[in-house]
Amino acid sequence: MMLGSFFDPSPMKWDGQMPESMAVGADHVDWVYYAIYYFSLFFQVVITGLMFYFVWKYKRRKGDKLETPPDLTRIEILWTVLPLFFIVILFHVGFKGYVKNAIAGDNPLEIRVRGKQWLWEFEYPNGMKEIGKLMIPVGRPVKMVMSSDDVIHSFFIPEFRVKKDVVPGMYSNVVFEANKVGSAHVFCTEYCGTSHSGMLADVKVVPVQEFDDYMKAGPSNPNCPDPNAACPADMKAKWGEALFVQNACVTCHSRDGSASPGPTFKGVWGRHEALQSGEAIDVDENYVKESIRKPQAKIVKGFTNAVMPAFTISDRQIDAITEYLKTIK
């Protein structure tokens, strides 16, 4: 019984090694982490302490005799067998925490995750999709159902202590239950090419009410979200800019002329582009639309390294993005 309670997680004082803990299983992981940390520190100090002591004590002096060591078979057996007990305990604690974090709570909220080079797309049960932003209700089990459109990615939220590869051709799951309102990041931790380090998403853990409201309202756009209202060009451009960032276009298309995985959008409007096929084209409304819906149709010469995913966004949103592209000079 005592041993059982000893292995139960207890809140650990955060001393700078682990990020803030924001999910239910995270405390156990931290407990395991610090337990093994002090265990290791102890052995490190004992081993290297003894080593330095011996080096100091038995430094070669004149008149040293060359002795054979005594028979240490008993000690040998001791330090061969004793670590077995340690590792059985270590395995047990590590496995326990792992299993705990692998099982979803009752009636979890299922969020569909698609990893693409280089963005995260989240689809909520009501069909709402968002790129680069993940809303999580606090205190409710969540199950991420993940797949990849291209290469292997890995879904990692340090604050939740969860990670799982997102593999093309199969579904993988991550489960967690956030227990703290706040913000965190999703990182991609499986190397996936040029903008691997740009494949991030913001995580917002919010109270359940706020989450439900958000699900009803949908993602807020700065302007012109109402399909029936008129939308002047400058407001359209602002909306387009928001969409541009929201859909992670910014990850691959620079706006200041610097080199990026996709063509830069500085002065893109009306530009005469040579294509990979050998033809050429002037950037206009039709080319923008086609490139968003079918990115592989007409690739600008020299940009075959990165494969842009297709985006299913409305005509109105494409109009707004087009309006925005005109303003990047």
Binding site: V29, I36, Q44, G94
Partner: peptide
């Protein structure tokens, strides 16, 4: 070797993997 223990243990490896 000792830091390998963190990575051999499942609970902590999930967090530390590929970091």
């Amino acid at each position: 070797g000792l830091t390998g223990l963190f990575l051999g243990m499942l609970a902590t490896d999930v967090h530390l993997h590929d970091t």
